[in-house]
Design a protein around this nucleic acid. Structure first.
Length: 156
DNA sequence: GCCAACGTTGGC
DNA sequence: GCCAACGTTGGC
């Protein structure tokens, strides 16, 4: 059982979109490290934070569950898709995706700004400088700590 | 919109 | 295989 953090831009696909869809595929990952995490380590039943990135108030919106382990990202095969990759085809797929399922919204939004204020979280990969990976593993103790924050008033 | 920090590409 | 140029991510 592993824990993850997965980023999405809320203007493109936010937590509300997943809530509406209930289950969806996590397509468009075009980074090898992120792909390897999905393909090699993510399994059905893992839990992930849904993180809103590249927006006014980045942070963790909710929780989802891995519903289906990695399979080829078919959006890479379609020239009409934004993340089309001519070097990937069905016989030799380069990119993979997983299916995720909506679990629940956090009791309150936990912003990146807030996460940075907790020294217990300072080693999170999310908080390391220069980090750009859109899929990151989270340690269980970090996961548990963040869930405890839900029930506390945010630090100023 | 800026720009730091990466990742990728391609010439050599 | 090196590395400069370019593209992308994502916080601010």
């Amino acid at each position: 059982m592993q824990y993850w953090l997965m980023k999405s831009e809320p203007d493109v696909y936010g937590f509300d979109d997943l809530k509406k869809e209930k289950t969806d595929h996590w397509d468009g990952i075009r980074n090898y490290q992120a792909r390897n995490f999905m393909r090699d380590q993510m399994v059905k039943g893992d839990l992930a934070f849904f993180y809103h990135s590249n927006c006014e108030d980045p942070g963790i919106a909710g929780i989802m569950k891995i519903r289906k382990s990695a399979y080829p990202d078919f959006t890479a095969f379609d020239p009409n898709e934004k993340y089309y990759d001519p070097k990937s085809d069905a016989s030799n797929p380069r990119w993979y995706m997983v299916d995720v399922q909506y679990v629940r919204r956090l009791k309150r939004f936990i912003s990146l700004r807030e996460l940075k204020q907790h020294k217990q979280l300072q080693n999170m990969r999310l908080l390391q400088r220069g980090n750009r990976l859109s899929i990151l593993p989270i340690q269980k103790k970090e996961w548990d700590y963040i869930l405890k924050l839900e029930n506390q008033a945010p630090k100023k």
